[in-house]
Simulated assay, not measured.
Amino acid sequence: MSELYIGLMSGTSMDGVDVALCEVDTSHCRLVASLEYPFSKALKEAVLQMIGSSTTLQTVGEMNHRLGLLFGEAVNALLAKEKIEAARIRAIGLHGQTLWHNPRGEHPFSMQLGDASMVAAQTNIDVVGDFRSKDIALGGEGAPFAPAFHQFLFHHMAKSIGVLNIGGMANLSVLQEPLIGFDTGPGNVLMDLWVQKQCNLPYDNDGQWAQKGKSDQALLDDLNNEAYFAAQAPKSTGRELFNLTWLAGHLQKHLKITAEDVQATLLELTVLSVVNEVRRYKIEHLLVCGGGVKNSFLMHRLAEELDNISVTATDAYGVSSEQMEAMLFAWLAYKRIHREAVELKAVTGAKTNGILGGVYAKD
């Protein structure tokens, strides 16, 4: 019997909160309705300030509260838009806003903020949150989770399928036995940060600015020399590595490159890091989702470099490319409510598949 779940996702780019209302059962996760709720510029800047500099416990606590309010507002906005009563929703799957991801330190952790109890109180719906901690406790990377969902959605297709999610970071799922999935490296994050710094724009629409520049091979080689790209899976990454400080360190050796040439090179870095990984596997069809799908120049370059592989947005296969990640957390909430383990150990390196997430009751 199917149930209604809401998935919430605010990714590395923080360009909005994706809210997905899904009908879920043992074999399907169908998107019923969705909403992109605005992430204010002031709140985004405050989060980036916390990530990029030292902070205080008070600031962390206050941000947890502020993000909880935001996520609760986002859910209520969707319910109001669709005229659906909260009582019909079995649970909310809350990813939270990632501030720091360090699964391989002396004391491994992954921090997502957004008070789940606040969301439950605001919406009067049970909330499932804190998904990553259990996987890390079991020795895993705590990311990416998408490969298990991609397998659930597309397992009926040919075995030569890869699914690429291009958000702030990019992650690749290879639908084979055993299931493989990992972060390839930066997706949109460096391009977004650079265009924000140079042009005061939230993102490079359709890659138009990158198209005006020319990729610089020396800079690209330097960026691609990052140890993360050569590391073997399981692996995951985030803003704690790929950020403006990381980029500035490389640009010091390439001072004569124009700003638009830097943007073109950053786009090529995303393409190169994806293509190098895709070529390791026998992938014939690459399904693409995430915000990067909207960058037509990025999609064009991927298709050019993978000219022997079909590169298509997941929309062509009946799954929203924009709402895929929010749908993932609706599905993960379903799995937690029904106490079902998520088959991720081959992806994250965990000792065993775990039941992920904690339940924050509405009452």
Results as ranks from 00 to 15, higher is better:
P108Y: 14
Q208R: 14
A259S: 13
V75A: 02
D18K: 15
Q49W: 12
L99S: 08
G249E: 10
G292P: 03
F131K: 01
T12W: 11
L298F: 03
S53L: 01
F39N: 08
M169K: 05
I161G: 00
A87I: 11
E45I: 06
A116Y: 11
V174R: 08
D130I: 09
V319F: 13
V278L: 06
A346K: 00
D261L: 09
H28V: 00
T258W: 06
I166E: 11
P144R: 11
G318D: 12
S310K: 15
M157K: 10
L241N: 07
G162T: 02
D206E: 15
E106V: 14
E260N: 09
L298C: 00
V319R: 12
T98Y: 05
I161P: 00
I257D: 09
A303G: 02
G11E: 03
L172G: 05
I257E: 04
E340C: 02
P38V: 08
T123A: 05
Q176I: 01
F149Y: 14
G162E: 01
L31P: 04
D192G: 02
V32W: 06
T352M: 07
G142P: 05
L79R: 13
E322M: 12
K81I: 04
C29T: 12
P234M: 09
M118P: 02
L21Y: 14
M1C: 01
A227H: 02
M1L: 07
D222K: 15
T352K: 13
R279P: 00
T265M: 04
E305C: 13
L179N: 09
K81P: 05
L219T: 08
Y360S: 04
A248D: 14
I337D: 02
V128I: 13
I337A: 04
V347T: 01
G139S: 12
Y317W: 07
L69V: 15
N308Y: 06
K282R: 05
V275Y: 05
M118C: 15
E226F: 02
A116K: 09
S310M: 12
I309R: 08
L287W: 13
M169N: 06
G358M: 09
L251Q: 07
A80E: 15
